[in-house]
Design a binder for these strands. Structure first.
Ligand SMILES: [Mn+2]
Ligand SMILES: [Mn+2]
Ligand SMILES: [Zn+2]
Ligand SMILES: [Zn+2]
Lengths: 146, 146
DNA sequence: CGTACAATTGCGAATATTCGCGGAGGGAAC
DNA sequence: GTTCCCTCCGCGAATATTCGCAATTGTACG
């Protein structure tokens, strides 16, 4: 994956320094894909060759990358996880509180929300990657019967 | 405020036990209003007369009340806070990542999103109380100039 | 290329949150 | 009202996350 350039440009544009720690965290998350916990990223980085990195540095790198919208933090049910943000391809999750099943949500629906918010208030909502909790259809029917 | 009845009914309906700890946490949050941290609720409860309550019990009571949708957890910028949920009067926040200012969002916009999700997927999204981050109009203009 | 300075890291400690376990007590059944 | 069972609580320990500070190191400048 040729993603180093993207990370470099993002950090520079935000006025942040380009450090190997930030690059390694960004690279680990980009290459691992999906939703990753801090622990997972830390382990992935430890398995590489190179200096070990303390957990606190992973946390700090993720905080910086979140500020730049390069990374999103999501709370899908259990604990929080991080994902690399592809702004050109937003995606979102519907998580059922009853059975825990998860399905994706058409990003156009959230884009419409963002457009409505901007039209009504001038505020630009960052809707890159969301997890919306609720009740799936089958759990709802089960609850209605009871 | 006459809110004990509501809490009692909610706990009973969820098949949970009605304990004084849960009632005290619920009452503290209802009477304090707004967004409250665990620490704040713990302090409010400690200032009452009655047995002191360990912090872990406050956490557990809040977890239970969240499952029942009596309480919502929100992450408005800094750390997480809890609020009592009034399902008949949902409200949401727009938080600017640039300047930190916060304004309310017309709940009708999120209700439309919920309707669209239900129509498209059958999933009922719980959209009682959200904090959406982004960039306010003035910060956006400042960033565009730079 | 060498210097200067502020941003960032590593480390350990502080804080925040969750867990495991034995005992207490809510509530259903007589 | 009494009994019994299973959920829940109090406690302390484990885990997760943040913070303070001295040492390091990107980066702008000459
Ligand atoms: Mn995702
Ligand atoms: Mn609110
Ligand atoms: Zn379900
Ligand atoms: Zn702003």
């Amino acid at each position: 994956m040729s993603c180093e350039g993207e990370t470099v440009a993002l950090l520079r544009s935000g006025g942040h320094r380009l450090t190997p720690q930030r690059q390694r965290v960004a690279s680990a998350l980009q290459h691992a894909g999906g939703h990753r916990t801090v622990e997972e990223l830390h382990a992935l980085i430890a398995h590489e060759q190179g200096a070990p990195m303390p957990l606190s540095t992973v946390y700090r790198a993720l905080t910086t990358l979140k500020e730049l919208r390069a990374v999103s933090e999501i709370d899908a049910g259990g604990r929080s996880a991080f994902a690399w943000v592809d702004r050109s391809r937003p995606h979102h999750h519907l998580v059922c509180r009853g059975c825990g099943t998860e399905r994706d949500l058409d990003p156009a629906l959230l884009q419409r929300l963002g457009d409505a918010i901007r039209a009504a208030t001038g505020f630009e909502a960052f809707l890159d990657h969301f997890a919306i909790t609720g009740q799936c259809e089958s759990c709802r029917q089960g609850a209605a019967r009871a």
